[in-house]
Design a binder for these strands. Structure first.
Lengths: 345, 345
DNA sequence: CTGAAAGCGCTTACAG
DNA sequence: CTGAAAGCGCTTACAG
């Protein structure tokens, strides 16, 4: 690797000057500037990023924390909704970080998996900040990161502090919209499939549904609220269970599109038609939602804004701004064929 | 941040000794060892990783190259098969890298997007090696990485050199198995949906299918081979096109599960039943494949082995081994309900 | 406008 | 077994 020393020698200047020319800081005579630039180009010089991080006491790096690393899903099957949904968010995180000249890093952590070890790993790597994607709301890294004053943006998890804020979808509104949609179609009794209890959004959505029901002078039947994992299999099982117990509902509101696909299978196996017998809605609007049969009514979240705004907020935190307000991104009902008029009794 | 100097002072030894105790290198008296360990623990000391990388001239970091960063899919929609499929592979890459104590890094590259700039980015970050996931076979970074002698393992892309090797699924065998399965069901004319021409696996699969057909004394009709993107939408469009042209086939072999879902929709819209009128198979065995209706016959690839073996090979390359043989992972037919006996004419 | 010197926090020959 | 010193490749006060 070429060093700044070689460039300096070739250009007949000091390393100080090379550094200044390349970083664009300080007054430099145009003639020297040209000489240095030419020398650097001819040698194919680029500054050693590690050395820069060392001297600056901070690397131009953003740590990326993902659900699936932490939750010990090592042997779980593919198909967690979150993965499919957040994959796209991830893409925009990468893009936006790259545009800002930041590397993305997933640190290894040999020393146990305590939240402290995670924070320590970020500190010893001198990361500028962290983006944490879809952590469980009980993840102990959330308070640890906030307390350590590492600039952090949480996506779909709630964490706030002087140097931390979050971005999330408006689940309350999303659930309200679906519920209103179903009420308008004449449905009076609906079942709700929410995610695991460690996830706050299930509760938010339930709240949104309750709002809509209350506005219509109705209330939620607790016996029709079911919890399951975000994936197809667990939703399938929970739906089979529900169907074996009772069938006094005409619609099911699923917590994710993949859950809806699992539920759809359980309905099919019982010979129930969607939406003829039961209306069904998802959440997320995966591309898949429009391809399955029947096309799935669902709630769209803005994945682009989610990824981009997370990095934009983080950059502001890195630059020292404090106490940034969280972003709550709008959600939108996408009505397709899986919801229809309530069957007349 | 605590430095080794503070630990040294507290323990009453030199930084040299602190370093040796913590790295476990060199003879150290038991008593001194204890003192240092206690001092480090009480101060919460961990070595600065950036400084270590600096002095070692190499960071304990693996660069991770992903399809979607390079291909400029910024505005594409969600649903590229690759993403869903490789997401799981990615998980095992992360796991295996973390076990070996390596960070994963996605470098930003502001200076144009030439293959040279990519290589340079890895070099200036002193990465130990790179894992490149599902690059297009024409990606110029493949030769660039090989030539730069950066230890690299390609996954589902072919690249070889003294310090580079690859891991891929056995697409030939997978396609042969599906084709044989369909032949056994009495199908005589089948259509093939392969991926983009820049992707070699489409060709491999075609070759596998040809092998099976040849063994049965049959040959491939070039007019029944269609190219499209790996996603639902493009496969849907290509299938609609094919169906508008001709219908003298009884089975469709899709290049991925998501393509199969797109094709399924096109068939449905024409009132064709699967497998009554047309048998349909996918590739990948996403969990989804068993949930859609009808359950999708497909080819399973071993994602766990794909991720894990890639890192294991890379670690050997990093340690200096050369010219490692590529891993070709077995594929396995998973027969479900979407394939059935050929309709009698 | 330019440079000599110090220093970022480690590790590693080299001595003893 | 232990330590003083050099050095990894930069950047940044401090001088001039």
């Amino acid at each position: 690797m070429v060093t700044s020393d070689e460039v300096a020698r070739l250009a007949g200047v000091s390393r100080t000057t090379v550094s200044r020319v390349l970083s664009g800081s300080g007054r430099i005579s145009e003639e020297v500037r040209q000489r240095v630039l030419e020398a650097a180009a001819s040698l194919g010089y680029e500054p050693n990023v590690v050395a820069q991080s060392m001297v600056r006491q901070r690397s131009r790096t953003i740590a990326l924390g993902l659900f699936h690393v932490e939750e010990g899903l090592s042997f779980s099957r593919l198909g967690e909704t979150k993965h499919y949904f957040y994959l796209d968010v991830l893409k925009y995180i990468e893009e936006e970080a790259a545009n800002a000249g930041y590397d993305l890093l997933q640190p290894s952590r040999p020393l146990g998996r305590t939240p402290e070890s995670y924070v320590r790993a970020l500190q010893t790597r001198q990361v500028a900040g962290a983006v944490m994607l879809a952590l469980s709301s009980t993840d102990p890294r959330i308070p640890a990161l906030i307390q350590a004053h590492i600039p952090t943006v949480f996506i779909d998890a709630v964490g706030q502090g002087p140097g931390a804020t979050y971005v999330k979808g408006d689940h309350v509104s999303g659930a309200r919209q679906v519920t209103e949609h179903l009420l308008a179609l004449g449905h009076k009794r609906m079942a709700f499939f929410v995610g695991p209890s460690s996830n706050m959004f299930g509760m938010e959505r339930l709240f949104g549904a309750q709002q809509a029901l209350a506005s219509a002078g109705r209330s939620l039947d607790p016996g029709l609220v079911r919890q399951s994992g975000w994936n197809m299999q667990q939703a399938y099982e929970a739906a089979a269970q529900l169907l074996s117990e009772r069938r006094d509902f005409t619609a099911i509101i699923a917590g994710s599109d993949l859950m809806a696909i699992g539920i759809l299978r359980a309905l099919r196996e019982r010979g129930l038609h969607v939406p003829g017998d039961v209306s069904l809605s998802g959440f997320d609007d995966l591309e898949l939602a429009s391809y399955i049969d029947p096309g799935l009514t669902t709630v769209r979240q803005d994945r682009v804004a989610m990824g981009r705004s997370a990095i934009q907020l983080l950059l502001r935190l890195i630059q020292g701004e404090q106490h940034l307000a969280p972003f709550v991104l709008p959600t939108q009902l996408i009505a397709r064929q899986s919801t229809g008029p309530a069957p007349s009794v």
